[in-house]
Design a protein around this nucleic acid. Structure first.
Lengths: 337, 337
DNA sequence: TTAGATTCCGCAATCGTTTGCTTACTTATC
DNA sequence: GATAAGTAAGCAAACGATTGCGGAATCTAA
């Protein structure tokens, strides 16, 4: 029952010419006469010939595939980023191999390994929250597979990256709260691994400094992003003698969990406690008490930008050019509801 | 600067043996002596040899890749399904190529084409809402690429599929509403292309019949899933002389849009109008007025089941066995909040 | 008529790995 | 001591497409 797909050899055999002639004819190579070229194309069309891409991939050492390693797909931030990545990829006739690390380093390593085995032409990654080192990504240099990090970018040099400038909007967010009269503003940060380059905190500090507000270290707590972790961090804030009146929170998901929990605790949102957050995911439109403001990080644009950078790197690799490390920083924007 | 990766030939050359011996040694073939085998393995380890998968893919006519074509990644339903798919795939040492159709037939076709070119070993698909025919999927038979549909399954025979039984829970959902005293229950359905096998509507009808309630055709409206489409459908219901008191709605996203709009219209949810819906996506936990009940469709399980089926098909293809068409139906469950 | 240019196409190698068949040598059996 | 069996390894083809090089045939021009 084996259906043999037509090959170049088959066409050559039928026309009593050589395979190389067929190949050249199909590619409109100038050294093939019109008559043969027509005959080849005609038969190819009849047989429904399609080149075996795996053979070409193998020969050309290219797979027209890019690998994408992200923490998860659940967060709308990442799915929006994928839209950007996929759009650019499709324009280049590339296709995207996706793997979720689920914030697990071991799984991330396995995924990278697997993508290397599949000889992807490049990798785009947003690291997991448990990623303490990036050797597995650095390994890719040995295979000449360029890697571009986006959003969750490791704090290392000699990497390519695309991310959002969260510093400016963090300053802006905190200033906005200060102007609304808040004097005790907490910062509910993410896990330490994602804070290596802590623009959110830096902005938080800067705003305090600028407005001559003291920073109370006990107002800075952190969550591992789990619901439980967020609850614990929130409790810590609420047990303080002098509670905060506002919280700057790592991202919208954490914020939603915190608000949910606060309401269980009979706190009145926007009166007892206010929230400002990051990501500005669309789902917050539907919720009862969304954060008062959220920093838009333009995931689609980050995805596009990261993919364009990756294609430039792939291009340079092909033409054997130098590729200096690029670290693209996009603007973010505080969206006030 | 070309870093040559070590190959079998290289190892053979260095040890002054033939490539075939190296290959067999690395595979623990019995006809290779212990001495040579050790030497080969030692050198392979030293050189950090790794087989070139693209060469193997080419030779074996297998890519250890499955293609996944879905409408979008935004809906948590699909991202949950992907979790199931990815978990099973990873267990089989497979990796997943993902493409979003964005409910556009042309894009879906392009994706399938692209996956065919990449010679994926199988495809899992949930069709777009604008998919009026499935020729592009049926084409895959010519390439011996098995296709498994899930959730959004086309109404065709000679296909493999995994879906949820929505009939029983639709009956249950409507009965639940009837028991709560509702007499005019609307059904806000999806686009016609997704209604070919309309279990939701059949269940809706059955419940009415069972409780001897007349069915008012004007209570059955449809949306193309866009916010605008949903608004229009909702308006149609509200303009009726005898308005419905409850709405059975295509899925949670449609429901959230409808509720959002209803509130803009100053309607009081759960008093003026109640909602029951499908999907039971976690995000509804955060919203102010979630649907009163939602039909859980177990996306993770559907993903797992579809992938397992696909692997059985791939297995059978490899061993040249017959593969009768399988249409797996999982249970759904009405979750009352 | 013939040297040289032009046109058209085939040979063979290549990419890296796998595998059926063959060969060379060693050991066992009668 | 001759034959059979067993062991270890190599040869070469194959997968499908591409490409440098070279060759034959035809044509142009002196």
């Amino acid at each position: 029952m084996e259906k043999k797909l037509p090959t170049i050899k088959e066409i050559a055999r039928r026309l009593n010419i050589s395979a190389s002639t067929v190949s050249r004819a199909l590619h409109d190579h100038p050294s093939i006469g019109l008559r043969t070229k027509m005959a080849v194309k005609k038969l190819a069309a009849e047989l429904n010939y399609e080149p075996n891409q795996t053979a070409i991939f193998f020969k050309q050492r290219k797979t027209f595939t890019i690998g994408l390693v992200i923490p998860n797909l659940r967060e709308e931030f990442f799915s929006a980023a994928i839209n950007g990545i996929e759009d650019v990829a499709l324009d280049h006739n590339y296709i995207v191999l996706i793997g979720q690390s689920h914030d697990d380093l071991a799984r991330e390593q396995k995924l990278v390994e697997s993508m290397k085995n599949h000889r992807v032409d490049g990798i785009i990654a947003s690291i997991s929250s448990s990623t303490t080192h990036i050797e597995h990504f650095e390994q890719m240099k040995n295979y000449e597979i360029p890697v571009v990090f986006f959003d969750r970018v490791p704090d290392a040099k000699d990497i390519h990256s695309v991310s959002c400038n969260l510093y400016d909007s963090s300053v802006e967010a905190v200033e906005w709260l200060i102007k609304k009269g808040h004097k005790r503003i907490a910062y509910l940060q993410g896990p330490p691994t994602l804070n290596m380059k802590n623009e959110r905190l830096d902005g938080y500090m800067e705003a305090h400094k600028k407005h001559k507000l003291p920073v109370d270290e006990s107002l800075i707590v952190s969550t591992d992003l789990s619901v439980e972790g967020t609850k614990k961090a929130f409790d810590a804030l609420m047990q303080l003698k002098k509670r905060p009146t506002a919280i700057l929170s790592f991202n919208d998901y954490v914020t939603l969990d915190a608000i949910h929990y606060a309401r269980q605790k009979k706190l009145t949102i926007n009166k007892d406690i206010c929230f400002v957050s990051y990501a500005n995911v669309p789902v917050t439109q539907y919720v009862e008490y969304p954060p008062l403001a959220s920093v838009e990080q333009f995931p689609y644009d980050q995805g596009v930008s990261a993919t364009e950078l990756l294609f430039r790197l792939i291009e340079k690799k092909t033409s054997r050019q130098e590729a200096p490390y690029e670290n693209i920083v996009l603007k973010s924007e505080l969206i006030i509801r």
